[in-house]
């Protein structure tokens, strides 16, 4: 879901102005190349000194990224000395690059960036890193290792867990439907690849993948594709969608056909007001969390500001939510 590229929309993006909440004015005339040592220098106890964290978000057009910013805010609220400065690049790599340079020019103490794509943002991020501003890369990677730490979840692993669960739900003989996220995006490819590994069709001849279609992460598309699957197949046992809106769309299609009790629905993302609630309401049978890493990023930023060293790579785990465990907050999968 995190490379949702609404190509058609890009044609119109040129008229969008940059907008960001709480934008701090960059120091006029400050050269991006100027070497400063605001942070990452001597050990400073967090909680005493004011700490400005710049957050460069690649796009706020998806609920998941809105959630990431909300998680960052919630975590930062517990530390009164922390100020967050958000910038939204509106799905434009070059705009994001400019915003990274603005944040560096404004001498933020830590940069948190969730890049739109690796190649165009690797160099700007490296430049900030060489200005001795610690850089925390969230969710999507940049190339090389010129950043302080990367925090992200593993889509392929989550896909694999989903595959195993679908196999358990399916039993010995079953017809399975897969509704895919944008298959030109890495998350879509990973959630697909992991799912097939977990499902392991080669060793389970009773399972058949009867229908797969790309619904580009969009609920109305998922509903349309599911209607086709329902028309073409008299028996469907499990539906796996690469995100919860997709699984919800599939459920609505099955419900309209009066067949929602015949099959089980599994999704990914588990946003509190979306997937988790669908599980609570009995719409989905299971969903896997795709954590935003917002809280972890703030914790790492505080450690970095205190002069501690942090791991170069942090992989976030997932949580499985089912009807049985949803009220206890799901179950962590290590």
């Amino acid at each position: 879901m995190h490379a949702r590229d609404f190509g058609r929309r890009l044609a119109f993006v040129l008229v969008l102005g940059g907008c960001h909440e709480k934008a701090s004015a960059p120091a006029p005339g400050a050269s991006p190349a100027a070497t400063t040592s605001t942070a990452g220098g001597g050990p400073v106890a967090a909680g005493e000194r004011k700490l400005v964290i710049g957050v460069s978000q690649c796009n706020l057009g998806e609920p998941w990224r809105v959630q990431m910013n909300a998680d960052l805010k919630t975590a930062a609220r517990k530390h009164p000395n922390v100020t967050l400065v958000f910038k939204d690049a509106q799905n434009d790599s070059l705009r994001q690059r400019a915003q990274v340079e603005e944040l560096a020019a404004a001498h933020v103490d830590v940069l948190v960036i969730s890049p739109k794509e690796a190649a165009p943002l690797t160099k700007p991020v490296a430049e900030v890193f060489h200005q001795k501003i610690p850089v925390i890369v969230l969710d999507r990677a940049v190339d090389g290792d010129e950043f302080t730490t990367f925090v992200g979840a593993d889509n392929q692993r989550i896909g694999r867990e989903a595959g195993k669960l679908v196999r358990e739900l399916a039993g010995a003989r079953a017809n399975i439907v897969e509704l895919e996220g944008l298959m030109t995006s890495t998350p879509g490819q990973d959630r697909h690849k992991g799912f097939r590994e977990g499902l392991d069709l080669a060793n389970h001849p009773g399972l058949e993948l009867v229908f797969e279609a790309d619904m580009a992460w969009l609920e109305p598309n998922a509903r349309k594709e599911m209607e086709s699957a329902l028309a073409a197949h008299r028996k469907i046992d499990v539906v796996y969608a690469h995100n919860d809106p997709g699984a919800h769309g599939a459920y609505l299609a099955a419900k309209a056909a009066g067949r929602e009790h015949e099959m089980k629905f599994v999704g990914i993302d588990a946003l509190p007001q979306e997937g988790v609630r669908y599980v609570k309401d009995g719409i989905l049978d299971a969903t896997f969390a795709y954590p935003t890493g917002g809280a972890e990023a703030i914790a790492l930023a505080l450690e970095l500001a205190a002069g501690k060293t942090v791991p170069h790579h942090v992989t976030l785990g997932t949580r499985l939510y089912t009807k049985a465990n949803v009220d206890q907050g799901g179950e962590a999968i290590q």
Binding site: F12, V15, L16, L60, P63, V66, Q273, E274, R277
Partner: peptide
């Protein structure tokens, strides 16, 4: 209408806080 397209999208996001407004209300 290009301007209205951008403006209305912004207003929709502002009104909803960027999230879906569902039967699970805050």
């Amino acid at each position: 209408t290009l301007a209205m397209m951008v403006f209305a999208r912004g207003l929709a996001k502002e009104l909803s806080g960027g999230q879906k407004i569902s039967t699970y209300v805050q």
